[in-house]
Design a protein around this nucleic acid. Structure first.
Length: 473
RNA sequence: GGCCCCAUCGUCUAAUGGUUAGGACAUCAGGUUUUCAUCCUGGUAACAGGGGUUCAAUUCCCCUUGGGGUCACCA
């Protein structure tokens, strides 16, 4: 059997991280089985069309490394197919016309709610005669087509959860074809998955309660039932379904903040399972190889930003300086400041271990470009005083002044020069290094002074030392 | 509320009918160090509760509790 999986989002304009994981698992499974991964756009809700959404989605899938093998299939372009299928149901008596107005349905629902009875359609229109139906249709009365749910129970097997049985009494006579002639999700998903020979439906847990409707339809049409795998939900820290209210949910948002695509796929892949006992970092190829539907957890997983940050830092550190600069380019373009390439290279080299996101790199670089203002108190080491700090800065200025320019291209030589000064004077490291570092960075916390000298070069370094000396008066 | 699903450190997870219940993030303490970051070492921290089954249950079964999902002419 040739495996076919699909990702079937509605075009909302962005890719939800839950959607990312669904797409990823579907993709991984298809690739592992030498199967096909399909993209299908479920745009049957005319009220919620978002212009440009499909292109944006495809672009994001591509940057995430999940390009579909086939598609996109667009449901709104396949209306005839759904209508034909509805007609088949109508002819067999498995579906029926319903002319009830929204007002009546709302009233019915309110009544049922008040009575605390289950909220279901009351089948009023099921009892219409053929003539009544014909005349209403002839009169152009708005109508929908509903599924006639048979009595009994529906049992299906979920690849992750095992066997699930639901009494058909719980299943509403679902609308299949809407007033506007568009299908609902439930009809379209069944018709399309069958039409596209989908073998494995991998999707979020929130769909599990509507599987009976789908199974009923598969049986009515005589279609072969695919395998279902309902993924546990991705959760907010408070354990509710991951939502926009509690932070970013769009993959595009994370990319825009400077998280790497490989971080995101790796991280999200591990929300629900882990192929081994003692590892967190997996390449994409490893994920393809190690993915296992049967190992997926049943319970929801909280999206932990702290761990995401850690993982992105790990991935960032595996990048070479040129790679990092190329990746961060869009973030520099946002700030519209031009930076000398070799200056940027040095910053990158030094800041690499301190980054959480690519945005951080752009932010740091900008800071290095800015002239600094700071409280002179930070120039003084905790075990020394201002006089001492000033003395060393003045002396270091002289040392550095005499240092040949080309020595500033070598961190080791720079360090040797400063260390020599310390040694010759028998000073404490802190007495010398602290003021120098603070003078160069203007901060209490920063990279070490040798790295800073290297980043800034001779001219800017001397300038910053002069400035610090002037502050100490 | 009806129905469905779920339950291992704070979080993501591993494993098992008999283990000191493992790893990672976070956190704490130390080391390296002028500070930060990196790096290294170590620590705190979990089988929701109650019944069974069994020589033995975290593991199998049941109940309770807790959490979540779903109940649209949205997907």
């Amino acid at each position: 059997m040739n495996v076919v999986t699909r990702f079937a989002p509605s075009p909302t304009g962005y890719l939800h991280v839950g959607g990312l994981r669904t797409a990823l698992y579907s993709y991984l499974y298809a690739k592992q089985q030498n199967g096909t991964f399909i993209l299908r756009i479920e745009d049957t809700d005319q009220a919620r069309l978002v212009p440009g959404a499909v292109d944006a989605l495809i672009a994001t899938l591509k940057t995430m490394g999940l390009p579909p093998d086939k598609g996109p299939y667009i449901q709104s372009e396949r209306l005839e197919l759904y209508r034909e299928h509805v007609q088949r149901l109508l002819d067999k008596g498995d579906a029926y016309y319903c002319f009830c107005t929204k007002e009546r349905l709302t009233a019915l629902r309110e009544e049922q709610q008040a009575m605390k009875s289950p909220m279901k359609y009351d089948r009023t229109c099921l009892h219409l005669s053929k003539d009544e139906i014909a005349s209403k249709i002839a009169a152009n009365e708005p109508h929908v087509v509903r599924l006639l749910v048979p009595e009994g129970k529906t049992t299906f097997t979920d690849e992750i959860r095992g066997e699930i049985t639901i009494d058909n009494k719980e299943v509403d006579d679902q609308v299949l074809l809407k007033t506007d002639g568009f299908p609902t999700y439930h009809l379209a998903v069944v018709v399309d998955d069958n039409d596209m020979s989908v073998t494995h439906i991998i999707r979020g847990d929130e769909w599990i309660s509507s599987v009976p409707k789908h199974v009923i339809l598969y049986n009515m049409f005589g279609f072969t039932l695919p395998k279902f795998a309902h993924l546990p939900l991705i959760l907010n820290p408070d354990k509710s379904k991951l939502s926009k209210r509690q932070g970013d949910v769009a993959v595009e948002d994370y990319l825009a903040k400077g998280y790497l695509p490989e971080t995101l796929t790796n991280f999200v892949a591990l929300l629900g399972f882990n192929p081994t006992a003692d590892r967190e970092i997996y390449s994409f190829d490893e994920l393809v190889q190690l993915f296992d539907l049967s190992k997926i957890n049943k319970s929801g997983a909280v999206f932990d930003h702290a761990k995401l940050d850690w993982m992105n830092g790990m991935y960032l550190r595996t990048k070479s300086t040129p790679e990092l600069i190329a990746l961060a380019k869009p973030f520099f373009e946002k700030s519209q400041v031009s930076i000398d390439p070799s200056f940027l290279e040095r910053i990158c080299e030094i800041e690499k271990d301190r980054l959480v996101t690519l945005q951080d790199l752009a932010d740091r670089a900008l800071e290095y470009l800015q002239s600094i203002e700071f409280d002179p108190a930070i120039l003084v080491w905790k075990k020394a005083d201002a006089t001492d700090a000033k003395m060393h800065l003045v002396a270091l200025r002289q040392v550095l002044e005499k240092t040949p320019d080309d020595m500033f291209t070598d961190r080791i030589l720079l360090e040797a020069a400063v260390k020599k000064y310390i040694e010759e004077g028998s000073y404490q490291n802190g007495n010398v290094l602290w003021p120098l570092r603070a003078a160069l960075s203007g901060k209490e916390k920063s990279p070490n002074p040798f790295e800073l000298l290297w980043i800034f070069g001779k001219q800017e370094s001397l300038k910053r030392i002069d400035h610090a000396v002037s502050l100490l008066k």
